[in-house]
Design a protein around this nucleic acid. Structure first.
Length: 557
RNA sequence: GCCCCUAUAGCUCAGGAGGAUAGAGCACCGGUUUCCUAAACCGGAGGCACAGGUUCGAGUCCUGUUAGGGGUACCA
């Protein structure tokens, strides 16, 4: 089965081919049917602007092209009517019977009706959140988390094999800092009078971890030499931190398929191997006691340090090795990283390094998620981990709810900054658009419940009895979901999904307003059954939209 | 300085690979309920930062200006 837009596209190209054969249009290769869904309903379900685009290469008047094309369009498929309109559009109305038949199609394929095949079974890894394991997650992590997980769902429904991964930065500076912070907190709990160093993490979640360690292991770390104590308590603390992160993330209904340890890159020799390859290719040099990647020879603005004078690798170096692992060891066809926009400077040089390692950088996409400002009262404040004025992710989810949280973070384009009004989300939640969508689903379920209680079955309903504008409008909107999936996946932009869900809900509410579903008149039974069928199909599509966003679809509100 | 992102209604944001009259929610004004959920529906008012360019056509692409955010470390 194909989607409406696929069929229309096919028909237009077929019409073109047929006009070529008849010689009414000059035979020039055309790949794109240039169709869209017009905003003005008077322009039909689809509009084709191909004649306008072909005017120049064909050296013909667009209206003449439109006429020739329209005359050759197949007439017994999806296209019900095609009309030529100045300055050269073809407005296409879907065949009514075909549209109504889709109600059956959706009900017969509730899980797969919106699946598309652009992924072609390729493997793709989506890596997101990947916050340093130095504490609990806070609200700044939420946006990337929601975007990453929804994108993963979308990629699956688009035919990709998806792995969701959390990259665990369990090596490096931040971790040293964490060890020091944890040890300090631990000592404080043991009654020692020690100050938290300036660079340390002030967060209270580290105190919680220190307390757990104290309860479990007693005072053993006090007796160790400084270095040993740091490392030992760090090793003891990491699993506890991970437990917390895992709990935080699951509050947003996220579960990773894999947690990848940075340390493992060194243990497995991956890091060393990677540097060696770069070295063998002549892109590595020693300067000022450090080891550099000569990225300037790879088209970058400047060279970058791989291994510091101290012998410690930079984040950049391990990131190269990590991505080398993704492509060369684990052989993903595609990799998508969801990053905060503050990592934007890393994109180009990482891609260059990968290219030097023989990976096509086009197989790597970074989705840069812009910063979120959280508005409390009238002031929008920037929250930072260092200043300690962070709001834990769990607190946000508990107060706002996972559904509202996901919807809010999803509904903005990732490359726009987002202002999250905490007060509005908390106090005014009933005015939140998320409820509008969920309410439509609850309404649907309510109708279906009534039908059940009245003993009305509707499997034998006949969609071709339908035909009210708001009915057709609703079905047409339902048929758009596969296109929304395609657009979202193609552009890695999950924000189209909540907007679609809103539109679909609007179409349903409108239908509900205009069409009485369960009639009390016996003579209306066939229509009632047909409408129940439509309502059930609408339920399936709405549910699917919510599922893709990992939101709940309440049956009662 | 250089690089990236952004600028659309009073506010928060869409505008789905340039298309025909730019949309939604909230806020404001007015209306709708003998009937399946009024958390709904209908109507009103209100906008593409500025200046050029590309073309049959620009909110969308290009250049410049202005404003905001981010980056430009042997931090991550």
């Amino acid at each position: 089965m194909s989607t409406a837009s696929e069929l229309i596209r096919k028909d237009i190209l077929a019409g073109l081919e047929s006009a070529f054969e008849k010689g009414t249009l000059p035979e020039i290769q055309v790949d794109d049917a240039a169709i869209e869904r017009p905003q003005n309903p008077e322009h039909g379900n689809f509009a084709c602007s191909l004649p306008l685009k072909l005017a120049k290469p064909f050296k013909m008047n667009p209206l003449a092209i439109a006429k020739a094309l329209t005359e050759n369009l197949p007439t017994n498929g999806v296209i019900g009517n095609a009309s030529v309109v100045a300055p050269g559009f073809i407005n296409i109305t879907l065949d009514r019977r075909w549209v109504l038949d889709q109600v059956h199609w959706i009900r017969d394929n509730p899980e797969t009706f919106s699946d598309i095949s652009i992924g072609k079974g390729k493997s793709v890894q989506v890596e997101y959140v990947s916050a340093n394991p130095t504490g609990r997650l806070h609200i700044a992590h939420a946006r990337g988390a929601v975007i990453g997980s929804t994108l993963s769902e979308l990629l699956r429904t688009a035919g990709y094999i998806v792995q969701e991964e959390y990259y665990l930065n369990d090596a490096g500076n931040q971790i040293d800092n964490f060890d020091i912070s944890l040890l300090t907190r631990y000592r404080q709990l043991c009654g020692e009078c020690v100050e938290l160093p300036e660079d340390a993490y002030p967060g209270e979640d580290i105190i919680d971890v220190a307390r757990k360690i104290l309860d479990r292991d007693g005072h053993r770390y006090l007796k160790m030499p400084e270095e040993e104590a740091r490392s030992a308590i760090g090793i003891a603390g990491t699993p506890l931190i991970l437990e917390g992160i895992s709990q935080d993330i699951s509050s947003l209904r996220i579960q990773f398929d894999n947690w990848f340890s940075e340390k493992s890159l060194f243990k497995a020799g991956q890091f060393q191997k990677c540097i060696k390859i770069l070295n063998d290719k002549g892109f590595v040099e020693k300067k000022d006691g450090a080891t550099w990647l000569i990225s300037s020879e790879l088209g970058e603005e400047k060279d970058n340090v791989l291994i510091r004078r101290t012998g410690a690798p930079t984040y950049f170096a391990t990131d190269i090795a990590y991505h080398f692992n993704k492509f060369h060891e684990r052989r993903f066809d595609r990799v998508i990283d969801i990053w905060g926009a503050d990592h934007q400077g890393q994109v180009s040089r990482l891609k260059s390094a990968l290219a030097a390692l023989g990976t096509n950088p086009d197989n790597l996409d970074m989705v840069l998620v812009q910063m979120v400002r959280f508005k409390k009262g009238k002031t929008a404040e920037k929250l930072s981990k260092r200043s300690g004025n962070v709001i834990p992710l769990l607190e946000l989810v508990n107060e706002v709810g996972a559904d509202a949280c996901r919807f809010m973070f999803l509904s903005r384009s990732h490359d726009s900054q987002l202002e999250f009004d905490l007060d509005l989300a908390k106090e005014n939640s009933s005015e939140n658009p998320v409820y509008y969508v969920q309410y439509a689903h609850a309404r649907i379920c309510s109708i279906l419940r009534l039908a059940t209680s009245k003993g009305i079955s509707f499997d034998e309903g006949e969609p071709n009895r339908l035909g009210e504008p708001s009915e057709l409008n609703l079905i047409n909107k339902m048929l758009e979901l596969p296109d929304v999936v395609e657009t979202s996946v193609r552009n890695l932009e999950p924000h189209h999904l909540p907007h679609y869900a809103l539109e679909l809900a609007t179409c349903f509410h409108l239908f509900y307003q205009n069409c009485r579903v369960i009639s009390s008149h016996a003579s209306d039974i066939p229509l009632t059954k047909s409408r129940l069928m439509l309502v059930d199909a609408a339920r399936i599509v709405l549910k699917k939209s919510l599922d893709l966003m990992k939101m709940t679809a309440p049956e009662k509100m």
